[in-house]
């Protein structure tokens, strides 16, 4: 009870979010409720208002809030939409928003690669499959979800646990030594500060120094220097997966698919 009183600001959005997601899931009714949408927005608002910390830079904050909000709302719409084709499109929206966040984290190459791979390849493939495999009209299994309450409850318990770790808690920061996973909670690190002295920093090679950080050059050095073997492995994986997909995919028996 004491714990609940201290952390109601964390618990409340979780409860609201779980309720909203569970209600928004398709359950056979033609329309989802307006109340659930409002409650979901409220939950997102509370989390954004209490847990996110502005950096002070207006532009970067605005972009971050924009991309984060689009990503979260898009994700909710994706998992709750009755039409899988729309789900795929909402997934594309989420992907674009995540790519924006990648840009904010100085990962331009990853952002463009993600857009190309996901939006350009994966989602299109999804849509193709959807057209091949979708039955005419709205199907029953799209209209009814399976135990949405249980799934939402479990998921939001997990989210609550994660956010509890991430939430800025003053007294914890004051009393506990800053080590390991828990120590990440309230840390604000300036961009330009070199963090090589930190004990948690992995050993990095000379190719990935701070000067090269965020550039194509740095990533290329890292991939084809430190992780060359892994890259080769990933290439093999792609080859094997494409062969496997061809083998698994059903043969066309007649002209009509």
């Amino acid at each position: 009870m004491q714990w609940l009183k201290e952390h109601w600001l964390l618990v409340l959005p979780m409860v609201l979010g779980a309720f909203a997601v569970a209600r928004l899931m398709p359950k056979g009714e033609p329309r989802s409720s307006l109340v659930a949408r409002l409650v979901g927005l409220a939950a997102v608002g509370i989390v954004g208002g209490t847990l996110l910390q502005p950096t002070g830079s207006v532009l970067s904050d605005a972009l971050f809030y924009l991309f984060a909000g689009v990503a979260v709302l898009g994700a909710v719409l994706m998992i709750t939409h009755r039409n899988p084709a729309y789900s795929a499109l909402w997934f594309a929206v989420v992907t674009l928003a995540v790519c924006g966040l990648f840009l904010l984290q100085s990962a331009p190459f990853l952002a463009s690669a993600t857009v190309i791979v996901y939006a350009g390849a994966i989602i299109v493939t999804f849509l193709f499959v959807l057209m091949l495999a979708q039955q005419a009209g709205a199907t029953n299994y799209d209209q009814r979800s399976r135990q949405p309450g249980v799934a939402a409850f479990t998921g939001f318990v997990l989210l609550g646990a994660l956010l509890f770790v991430l939430s800025p808690s003053k007294e914890q920061a004051a009393t506990r030594p800053v080590t390991g996973f828990v120590s990440l909670a309230p840390k604000v690190v300036p961009v330009d500060q070199s963090s090589d002295q930190l004990s948690t920093t992995p050993q990095s090679t000379s190719a990935t120094t701070a000067e090269n950080f965020g550039t194509m050059r740095g990533l290329g050095r890292s991939l084809f220097g430190d992780y060359l073997f892994a890259v080769e492995l990933a290439g093999t994986l792609l080859l094997v997966a494409s062969i496997g997909a061809i083998v698994i995919a059903p043969k066309r028996s007649s002209g009509k698919l």
């Binding site: 479990t154 998921g155 318990v157 997990l158 646990a161 994660l162």
Partner: peptide
């Protein structure tokens, strides 16, 4: 997932 949650908590 339930197992993961319980373990995490």
């Amino acid at each position: 997932l339930l197992g993961v949650v319980l373990f995490l908590i």
